[in-house]
Amino acid sequence: GEEGTASDEIQELTIKFAHVVSENTPKHQGGLAMKEYIEEHSGGKIKVEIYPNSSLFGDQDEYQNLVANNIQFIAPDVTKFVGHNPQFNVPALPFLFDNDEAAIAFWDGEKGKEILNSLESDGVIGLYMWPNGGKHITNNERPLVTPEDFNGLKFRTQGGQVLEELYTTLGAGSESIPFSELYTALDQGVVDGQENTFSNIESKKFDEVQDYMSVMNHTRVDYAIFTNTTFWNSMNDATKEIVQAGVEEGTRVAREESQKLNAAAYEIIKERGETEIIELTPEQIEVFRQVLEPIYEEFESAIGADIIEAARAANEEYGNATE
């Protein structure tokens, strides 16, 4: 901003934050924390409106509306951007991160920032990763303990070439079925299984219609909060300081809530007892890791050896090995 003497005055603004998940999610809680912080610290000069549940824009159109500055923040699943930049495939790479901390450390690190900033030519900046958690596999046929158990099964994924390759490597098939149809599709056996975070499995009650759940933690769902350069550069220092701090507060809350929510969801699934839970041992995980290793070779050139290197380093430092 070139407001001259007024540049230390907080600007009057309305900030719109649109996302596609419901209100009882870490993402929405993070958004609320952000709203509260910014509105309070700006003395009400900055208003933050949150649009959950795709009520304003959905998965397919929020990006271009961010670019057009019709909204100022979105927080999509980063793998939605694999079509823009294949490096966003990181959360879909098998067994890359042991836990949220390792994934956060990667995305907060240099290489992670590089990926998040790779959309700058479109006028989009990625600020922070907001975790959703590790994914686990449910199915209706048999307990999945070894790679051979996957043979011939059909899984639903949210799409993407890495996940497709992952299931192909395990001798299984994958289909992308809309999330809203998934419960019925599982119930009626259109597909045999699916992969999701504990919180999604619990809230959508997939355990009711799936006999087995393997706690695999093989891939992840991670969101990131994005803003656009038009908006970001229009703020003067005083304003930007508050908004930046608000985003950080939202990030803190979203990260904290995500862990709490997944832990609670796992407990609920156990209590409901609808599905047989298989917790894989480190040795059993290792077998999968070996079998799925070729995926790294296949996607190394697209994603970048340095990226994978950095992710592994983050996992060395923050993953389970340190405990």
Binding site: G152, K154, F155, E164, G173, S176, I177, V191
Partner: peptide, 9 residues
């Protein structure tokens, strides 16, 4: 028994 993941799109 083989899924065609490209078909839907």
């Amino acid at each position: 028994g083989s899924s065609q993941s490209w078909a839907t799109e």
